[in-house]
Design a protein around this nucleic acid. Structure first.
Lengths: 232, 232
DNA sequence: TATCATTGTTACCAAATTGTTAAGCAAATT
DNA sequence: AATTTGCTTAACAATTTGGTAACAATGATA
């Protein structure tokens, strides 16, 4: 009753590395070198989870994801993206498409295996698909955050947000209710290899709140823990 | 509380440099001059992360890594490689050694520290903890404790809990029926090396009960022993 | 019942945490 | 080259929290 994982990455080394580690854990592994191969493989036999690299020749992860979601037969398969870096366009794009999780490169086999298991558990429990990681546009009445145009609207009036503040608001608003420690926000918004002091987050939170006006209250502080974006 | 990093490099200068920078950041640092020493040190005391140079006399990084992974006790410790040449990166990947990250020499202390922190965070988050791991949300009718949002609901109404009170309730509710001595609660909720008077627990229990209203009765006192959370 | 041991409750204060402001840089733009 | 913009940091203010002591209540034991 082993689950089947389909891996797509153009680098053979990465495929081998992931493949090796997943099969060691008892998964059945299929692999593909680009998006087109992914679709071909899926036609032949279904998969329980798909790992997609974003940058691939022929058909990239972005297009592949769209195609997978468009087909009713495969629309509900969980997808895990491999991204080069947090905050990069790649990630942005993947999140609007119904990606369920993502792992940053360079890939740590054990992190990946843990994520795969966690994703499968999530999907096993609730047969219906959980909310996707994030949407392109977040519209929580009064506050609209639009990824494609990089604009924020407060009460339908545009308010300018510099990049970091935008990313921070976007990330928090994408996961309403969920609490994030400062270090987690640094990982997610600033990306790995950041050399900034944790308190930098506070200053950005302050600025975001300021720009949100009354809605600034939606970003709640939990002392000793972190911040969260709430909807009432 | 402080994480222990084990560094292996045959050059004393490098060990010192890395050691200095990591301890400045609050890490406890151990060092070894070759692979054999790494294994010896690990037998004596575990580490939270290992930094391995590839080229070392006696036993090189590759072999050390293999040995570390082969031993169940150390198999899950994240490993970060130091590589001299670009070519070595490929080797790490292709050898399927289970490296979690790598840094190229010459080592920039800032980059290294950032990687170490990032790796530790990644592992904290994705590694599922042993059997004691509790659910994200505990829902014992009338009382809901949610870790992901750090909120408590009593009869579906949100009640604010400061950190310690939240953690205390969360811990007790995660192990219903079981009795915990004050000492044990201090270990679990406050942490292993805290210098707090045991009666502090009482005060917190009181506050938690107060906030739980009628459900406060669920936290029972066992005289001379401790407390427990019961479900009818 | 009287006494002792244990726990409940309250209030206060020090320490930890966060909010807020402003200054210094570096990168981008003019 | 000069100016602007955004990011980071440090410093100080404001706030919250958690720890403790003191006293009250409870209950076990003789």
């Amino acid at each position: 009753m082993s689950k089947t994982i389909l891996i797509a990455d153009d680098e053979q080394d990465i495929r081998d590395l992931i493949s090796y580690n997943l099969s060691k854990e008892g998964f059945t592994v299929e692999s593909a070198a680009n998006g087109k191969e992914v679709l071909q493989k899926l036609e032949q036999s279904p998969a329980d989870l798909i790992i997609l690299d974003i940058m691939m020749p022929e058909m990239d992860g972005f297009e592949a994801c769209k195609a997978i979601r468009a087909n009713p037969k495969t629309a509900n398969i969980p997808i895990l993206f491999l991204t080069a870096r947090a905050g990069e366009v790649d990630q942005i794009v993947s999140l609007e498409l119904g990606a369920d999780d993502y792992v940053q490169k360079p890939v740590s086999p054990r992190v990946l295996v843990a994520r795969v298991k966690s994703l499968l558990r999530r999907f096993d429990r609730s047969e219906q698909k959980p909310a996707t990681a994030a949407a392109e546009q977040i519209n929580s009445d009064g506050v609209k955050v639009d990824r494609s145009s990089y604009k924020v609207f407060v009460n339908d009036k545009e308010v300018f947000f510099p990049r970091k503040e935008f990313e921070l608001l976007y990330f928090l608003a994408s996961h309403p209710g969920r609490i994030y420690k400062r270090e987690a926000l640094l990982d997610e918004v600033w990306g790995r290899d950041t050399f900034v002091v944790e308190r930098t987050v506070d200053v950005h939170i302050f600025k975001v709140r300021e720009k949100l006006g009354d809605y600034g209250k939606r970003i709640e502080t939990v002392k000793g823990v972190g911040y969260r974006y709430v909807l009432e």
